[in-house]
Simulated assay, not measured.
Amino acid sequence: MSERTTSSNWALGIVQALELGGVDCRMIFPELGLDYAALEDPDARFPQDDMTRLWQRAVALSGNPAIGLNMAKVVRPASFHVVGYALMSSRTLKEGLTRLVRFQRIIAEGADLSFRSTPHGYELLLAIHGDRLPPARQSAEASLAYALAFCRWMTGKPILPQQILFQGEPPADLQPFQQVFQAPLKFNAAHYALLFDRADIEMLLPTANEALAQLHDRFAGEYLARFSESRVTHLARQVLCRLLPQGEPKREAVAQALHLSQRTLQRRLQEEGTSFQQLLDDTRRELAEQYLAQPNLALLEVAYLLGFADPSNFFRAFRRWFDITPGEYRTRL
């Protein structure tokens, strides 16, 4: 099974945040079997589970469960790899955050981002996945703190979000969270998210540069293509997204689109820890969330866009995924 990985750029940001909190990473890297020198190699990547162990060890050594929030103090575009520069040259934060979602896997594969318009503004949603170890909550807290600090740094404005959502119980000490986010905090939420005002996200960036934005897009696209070549899961997901509106895609059609035999496709997916059926189900679930966030799409249309010939199959699948009906889910949104 191929492991999810984190770029050395993001790992270096984490290390700087931990060192600010008094943790000696030069000492604990060898303990965890990690190469400290690789932090300086822009092409190096660290397994996701090793990053989880690093967070756990740092919390144990520092006695500070909120140490992830230090990420807000180490803002620099390079932490986001080439994506940081693409963000800076974007016209608005809206354009920048859309780029961040598109190229996010370059920074870290353990995180999934989505960015959407809401009736009251915009929402940047974050999901963190582990491989064999459940992800550390500090990883998600660090990502939210960094994303907000980066937005403030790019705009030169003290952006105050409408609300910050966290999964899990509230911490014993809320003060560090209030200090970093300066916004209402909601715990035990369905997902991690930053909720922004429309005006903040649509304001022009002082660093906007269309020509540079296109150049950075090309660099990021090329890097992602090189990086994804070995990941059949990623390529197969793209094919599924394309084929779903025409009905439920067959494994044969996906294998053909990837110039692979069905057997090779199944074997490669297995090596990456999934199967064709599992990938189809996951892709439909992710797309269902995106489609239901678009109020102009009727539930019937969503069912057909997800390749369900019979809408009742969509309703059954949705209840299995989320424990509620699509209508109830949309009402909650």
Rank of each mutant, 00 (worst) to 15 (best):
R99F: 02
S117K: 13
S62I: 08
P184Q: 06
A211L: 09
Q16L: 03
R102H: 06
P134E: 14
L34F: 08
R102N: 05
L204Q: 13
L165S: 05
K157R: 10
P206Y: 03
L292P: 07
L165P: 03
S230L: 05
A257W: 05
L113I: 02
E272G: 09
L34P: 05
L69Q: 08
L100S: 03
A78G: 06
D217C: 10
R320E: 15
I107W: 03
A317T: 07
D282G: 08
P295D: 14
S2N: 12
A11P: 02
P245E: 08
D197P: 05
F315T: 12
I324N: 07
L287C: 09
P249C: 02
E248T: 11
E272V: 11
V75T: 07
Q179K: 08
P206C: 07
S7Q: 07
P171F: 08
F177M: 04
L100F: 11
E286D: 15
A189S: 14
T5Y: 15
Q162E: 11
Q262R: 15
E202L: 10
E271R: 13
F46L: 15
P134D: 13
P158S: 11
S62Y: 07
R251C: 06
A66L: 05
L160A: 14
T98A: 14
T233P: 00
P119L: 10
R231E: 05
R268G: 04
D173S: 08
L54K: 11
G13K: 00
G247F: 00
A140Q: 11
A60D: 03
P47N: 12
V254T: 08
V59A: 01
A147N: 10
A317Q: 12
R332E: 03
R332P: 01
I14P: 00
E229M: 12
S261E: 13
